[in-house]
Structures are given as structure tokens and as C-alpha cells.
């Protein structure tokens, strides 16, 4: 059987409680807590808790997608592929959420919702890659064949996405806070008040994504079992 849904961690309740506590805490202190007064950013710095954390959750979902694709190719267990597919869907959801929160923020901070920024281009490319991943999945009717071919593509896409998001933006100047001489939240600026909210926010959103993903995987499994009988 597959390791994820049979795994006790997926069924345990304690990390779901942590997710809820972290998110309630984030939503409360994200709006009430103290933030440093910074030029350009001002109060919009609070977007750190709701925008940057989306990318973190998206990265986690992509990592799960890639890991379970590799697992599928070595085990040929169809439940590993199920986890890969659902984590790919969650990655799309979080990338859309991150894009929307970022565009609203950029509209007021940079004056335009879309600029020619390496990180924005990387995101657009990532969304296209995962859209292509689902198009590929739908193009193949046979279940086993689909899982295998999509797994190969997912691993390839993950590496390319990693290069595009993590390597290339480092080579160019970016408008993003903390890059290209913009004021931002690097380790000297991000004060302890913000850290106290930012880290729980990252944990909370990542756990929420994992929770949603595991629920969808379990629903799919129940459907499969009921269809078989």
C-alpha cells in the first residue's frame, strides 16, 4: 500500500490542530501586530504573511509532486501517482493565490499589477508547466501509462522550474523587496515582531496545503474502493 495515506501521520490530528492555531494566530497578529515603518512598503509589508507564504506552500507542494513522481517510477504503485497528481493540483491553487495576492500588492506598491520581473516570469512559467502537466495527464487514457509518462514530465518540469525560480532571478535585478537594493526583509531588516508572525504563517499555510492534499487523496481512494465493489 502507499506510504502516505496508510501513514499514521496523514491520519493523525495533532498537526491539523497546529495548522489551525498557526493560521488563526497569523490572521490576528498579521493585521494587529507591530511592523517596522519602511519607505515605499509602509503597511503593505503585512503582505509578507499572506503572499510570500503562498510561494512557500507552493514550493512544498511541488516538492511533494516531484518526490512522489520519483517514488511512482521506482515503485509503480498507483497511490504514489495519486499523491503526485493531487499535490500538483494544490501547487496550482497556491500559485494562483500567490499570484493574486502579489498582483494586488504590486498594483499599489509598484503602480502596476505586472512588471517584467524575473520572479514574475518564473511564476508564469511555473503555472504553464503545471497546466501542461495536467493537459498531458488528460491526453492519455490508460491509467498506468498516464502515471508513468506524467511522472517523467513532472520530474523534468520540477528541475527546470527550480532553475527558473531559484537560479535565474539571482542573476538579474528584481523589483522585489530586499533585492536589487530595494528596502525589504532580509535578515537585518526583518525585526523580531515580524519573525514571530512570519514563521508560524509559513508553517500554517504549508500544513494547510498538506491537509487539503491528503483529504483529496483520501476522497479519491474512497471513490476508487466504492467503484470497485
Amino acid at each position: 500500500m502507499d506510504s502516505f495515506t496508510k501513514n499514521k501521520i496523514a491520519r493523525a490530528w495533532w498537526w491539523k490542530i497546529i495548522a489551525i492555531i498557526c493560521l488563526v494566530y497569523t490572521c490576528y497578529y498579521g493585521f494587529i501586530g507591530n511592523v517596522p515603518a519602511m519607505v515605499v512598503l509602509h503597511e503593505t509589508i503585512r503582505n509578507l504573511y499572506f503572499h510570500v507564504t503562498m510561494w512557500m506552500a507552493m514550493m512544498l507542494m511541488m516538492l511533494i509532486n516531484a518526490i512522489y513522481s520519483i517514488k511512482y517510477l521506482s515503485s509503480l504503485n498507483k497511490y504514489d501517482d495519486l499523491v503526485a497528481e493531487e499535490s500538483g493540483k494544490m501547487a496550482m491553487v497556491f500559485s494562483a493565490a500567490g499570484l493574486i495576492t502579489g498582483m494586488v500588492w504590486a498594483n499599489y506598491t509598484w503602480g502596476a499589477p505586472w512588471t517584467n520581473d524575473p520572479q514574475l516570469n518564473g511564476t508564469a512559467a511555473t503555472i504553464l508547466m503545471y497546466a501542461a502537466y495536467f493537459i498531458l495527464r488528460n491526453a492519455i487514457p490508460d491509467e498506468n501509462k498516464k502515471a508513468k509518462i506524467a511522472g517523467v514530465y513532472a520530474i523534468f518540469a520540477f528541475v527546470m522550474m527550480f532553475v527558473f525560480i531559484m537560479v535565474i532571478p539571482k542573476m538579474y535585478n528584481s523589483l522585489h523587496p530586499g533585492k536589487g537594493g530595494n528596502p525589504g526583509f532580509n535578515k537585518y531588516d526583518l525585526d523580531s515582531d515580524m519573525r514571530m508572525v512570519f514563521y508560524p504563517a509559513v508553517i500554517g499555510w504549508c500544513l494547510l496545503g498538506t491537509w487539503l492534499m491528503s483529504l483529496k487523496v483520501r476522497i479519491r481512494r474512497i471513490k476508487e474502493i466504492t467503484e470497485e465493489n
Partner: peptide
């Protein structure tokens, strides 16, 4: 990607859809 597409019903448009996003980092 052509190898991938050849296993997926050989849809000609699929090569561009699957290949272009993977080529963005290279082309930029």
C-alpha cells in the same frame, strides 16, 4: 518531450504545450 509526446497519442500540438514552458529558462 518528443519522446513523451510519442507515448501520448502523438498529438502534434502537445509538443509545443509541453516543450515551451520547459524552454523558458534556456531561452531567457
Amino acid at each position: 518531450v518528443a519522446g513523451i509526446v510519442s507515448k501520448a497519442n502523438n498529438n502534434a500540438a502537445l509538443l509545443a504545450i509541453l516543450g515551451f514552458p520547459l524552454l523558458f529558462p534556456l531561452l531567457s
